[in-house]
Nucleic acid binder design. Sequence first.
DNA 1: ATGAACTGTGCAAACGTTTTAACAAACCCA
DNA 2: TGGGTTTGTTAAAACGTTTGCACAGTTCAT
Lengths: 342, 342
Amino acid sequence: MVTIKDIAKVAGVSPSTVSRVVSNHPRISKETSQKVKRIMEEMGYHPNVMAKSLVSKTTQTLAIVLPRPAEELFQDFFFGELLRGILTQSARAGYDMLLTAATSPHDESETVSRLVFGRRVDGIILLSSRVNDPLIDMLDKHKFPTVLIGRTDEHPNILSVDNNNEQAAYDATAHLIVQGHERIGFVSGPPALTVARDRMQGYQRALREAGLPIRSEWVVEGEFLQQSGYRAMSFLMGLPERPSGLVVIDDVVGFGVLRGLTELGYKVPDDLSLVSFNNIALSELAQPPISSIDIGTYQLGYTASQILIRLIQEENVHQTRMIIPHRLIVRESSIHTVAKRS
Amino acid sequence: MVTIKDIAKVAGVSPSTVSRVVSNHPRISKETSQKVKRIMEEMGYHPNVMAKSLVSKTTQTLAIVLPRPAEELFQDFFFGELLRGILTQSARAGYDMLLTAATSPHDESETVSRLVFGRRVDGIILLSSRVNDPLIDMLDKHKFPTVLIGRTDEHPNILSVDNNNEQAAYDATAHLIVQGHERIGFVSGPPALTVARDRMQGYQRALREAGLPIRSEWVVEGEFLQQSGYRAMSFLMGLPERPSGLVVIDDVVGFGVLRGLTELGYKVPDDLSLVSFNNIALSELAQPPISSIDIGTYQLGYTASQILIRLIQEENVHQTRMIIPHRLIVRESSIHTVAKRS
DNA sequence: ATGAACTGTGCAAACGTTTTAACAAACCCA
DNA sequence: TGGGTTTGTTAAAACGTTTGCACAGTTCAT
């Protein structure tokens, strides 16, 4: 490996000069700079990242901490898009991305400690947003640059990027109400996740404002899994009084719902109208296409990376909570009026 | 930050002794070791990763290099599962994972050079497997620990993990043949990708061995996008003589195919039977569920990470090509006989 | 009893950078 | 002409580890 010293020797200058050439120091003469650059090119010099990090105390690296296995599938679909947003922005800003998936809670804090205190990364993007997360506690206490994709009430100083999930769920529900539905159910996710709580609130507010009944048997809590949607259907459709419209916490769950309904012999949207969340690419291709709240997944990731880097580079970042706008994409699963070809 | 010297001072030993305690050097006495460990615990010592890497010349980090944007969506679905396999194994082996997505070809070689020559990572997992890839050339020439998920003929020394895609396509096609189909088409991907070539070969071999016609108008090349499947249908179903069975290169494309057929008023599998590849979670939930070749996505990732780490740690690794078994998952899209509830 | 082998520890060099302080040379303004 | 400023460069310390070598003390076989 060719080092800064090798270059210096060949160029007949000191190592410090070479270092300054690399970092475009203003007080280097044109000639020296050109000569050194030429020699670096010729000899194929690449700075040793570790040595640089050691002295500069910055690694130009961020870490993404994935949620624990319980929420595993949750990732699988809109996760790719989120990642793409994060990677695009961080690459643009010259940061590398470290990806860590902890298997156990103990493991998780162990891993993050290693990254944080071992000075391996400059900042952390958290994807999990459980209520009362000890990991967030830890990062907050040490004032380590952190951004949360999601929401936390307990830590006002932690930067976060989120949707207005309450409003999004309100909008989804209101859309069904406008379509004439009066009996509207909700297939939710794990109540420990803030996103599930927020959406539940919005769902209830929409019903309340419209003067419609809030019936607890029409609310089913599950996971971010297809099976949850599938199972919810055998329950909901077995009720003496059934909902005619359904808000579903996630597109993948929506697919399960669709499958369940089909097997039970019901038609969407005729027997039950459907709106779900996240707008993954495949919702458009469901049979029928599923109406979904687009949460700006790519932008969520892009923005998270952006404000994290800003937090690292500038001292004072004032805005701590960023809201990415959502929008409802209406498809056949929630409108009766579309002519169906078949 | 508390360093090894701080610990040494408090424990009344030399820094070297502390270092040896950390690395469990055999010639450290029980008492010293225990005392030092206790103090480390108390003072919250975490080794500085950069300093360690600098002297040990190993970073305990691997990089995943994602394919360029053209293949972007290709990732999105089975990518999550692949990633999970890689992350699980590398975490288990004590390696961190760096994720990089290059935007341009120039960018790509630039980024990888930086990682490789800057000694930032110990090994690289390549996800793209284009024919004649300059990146693979470069890594091969420098003998940098690399494993390719996919296949390359030009570089016999590069480790690779792959499916037997030729056989998989053969199996998919043979399955349709067994179902009685004699006119079988193939919706393929970009011909620059080895995976598309391999599957094409297998498809053709199956037809040849069964004495069935290979008709070039029944083969459509596209991308790994839903739209490709959708478009392929308007073409194929507009032919004077149409296929009655179809092999599709990817589940997502299969979703597009399904959508296209539905819009055109055809029924699956009655009018056209379908088998595709990758077996993403949602293929089970398509309407009808799509028969798919499970390529062992998780294991593909897990194995890639495993042999890369072996290559890094041991000098001589003999086996250079690893084949992950596939299996056909038969669902309704390819069998007439299932009673349909509706 | 004596040298050999082993055990436990410390010193100091090394890894490849960045950066502070110092300094010589050139330039500028009166 | 001389002091001050600017420009271009360097020497050397520092970042936090690891590790080869040295060495003192202990154990062991003869």
